[in-house]
Nucleic acid binder design. Structure first.
Lengths: 195, 195
DNA sequence: GTCTATAACAGGATAGAC
DNA sequence: GTCTATCCTGTTATAGAC
């Protein structure tokens, strides 16, 4: 049975994703991608006729799909804002493997200088993230403008914490980001009762 | 006069720095470094016998030196904390070209996976930054632990804002980071007088 | 669909003239 | 110190057997 797929598409993308998240686009060689997936280079080209570029494209698309389902959508759910954040925190923790995995939005930014091939997708992703976090902040009672600022700060903290994790070789920054997210985005909780 | 340097060392490092900050270590090809500096590959090897690795090393060392002089030292000056931050904000703005230049600490993290050749320097830099920002926070009246948390958050916001700038193709996140830094680190100013 | 083998090319690095 | 020309390795990508 050499005719059937030796690895299903989801797992394949997941393995490729790991590599791109670790070393970025330029840093990822086909040899490395081949090893990580267990497929020979030629097999990778069979599944991705446009080569590395296509692999990264599909990895990014898959990630954005996951984010939409597990981050953006929950942020706009009808649940109370703090509950939404709690769910999102859990999902972020899983998505970034507790801070051990970097963010594609960072690792795929400007592979070559100039607005690389991922620029549009990345820009759209950041905007969608800010927008969704803003929604939660507004639902917690913040004005549009203030909520948006909090959302932007949240994304900065997310990205920054991941950068620090890589730099320090520790997941602590990401953990403290996660534990502070609700208050950062929604505001300090009232000491007693609801406002 | 082909015997004298066609470009002085400082300018040379600055040009190389630009490339590494734009595309990272793996992304920077010798051709690109050659074009950016106006020197042929062989000339680059004359100045940096150990090749690209050495170029990146020296670029990083130069950056860390600059940071020490213009960021770390001012943060521990005897001036009032808010004045220190004002000075640091100005220097950060220049260093990152108003958000147009990425941070080497991010771009040189894990060129290959595993603790790359820059890992130690990068880790040390993050620790020094946190430590120096902590000092300013403590001098503003925060307890050691709280000050340290604020310092870590400040670095996260710095790094995250730069990531967002690249992703969005806008310098706005960096600007809002800069304008909020003093309050983020030292706390909201008392509405009237000093506490 | 996957493999081995190889082509075609770009990357980092050197030699040697000036 | 800088240049032109070149080497060698590793990279992306393809051909063709199974």
């Amino acid at each position: 049975m050499a005719r059937t797929q030796s690895i299903d598409n989801e797992e394949l993308i997941a393995r490729l994703s790991c590599v791109f998240r670790e070393v970025g686009y330029e840093g990822a060689s086909l040899t490395q991608l081949s090893k990580a997936t267990g497929l020979q280079k030629a097999s990778l080209y069979h599944r991705f006729p446009d080569g590395k570029q296509q692999m990264a494209d599909e990895v990014l698309a898959a990630a954005l799909g996951w984010v939409k389902a597990h981050i953006l959508t929950p942020l706009r759910s009808p649940a109370p804002p703090r509950e939404r954040i709690a769910a999102v925190v859990e999902n972020l923790d899983a998505f970034y493997q507790g801070g051990r995995q970097a963010c594609l939005l960072n690792m795929l930014s400007s592979p070559r200088a100039e607005p690389g091939p991922f620029a549009d997708a990345i820009k759209g992703a950041f905007e969608a993230l800010v927008s969704a976090f803003s929604a939660a902040a507004r639902d917690a009672g913040h004005e549009a403008k203030a909520g948006r600022l909090r959302a932007e700060r949240a994304i900065m903290l997310l990205q920054g914490s991941l950068v620090m994790c890589r730099g320090l070789g520790s997941v602590k920054p990401f953990k403290t980001f996660l534990s502070g997210l609700a208050d950062d985005l929604l505001g300090e909780p009232a000491p007693r009762g609801r406002p």
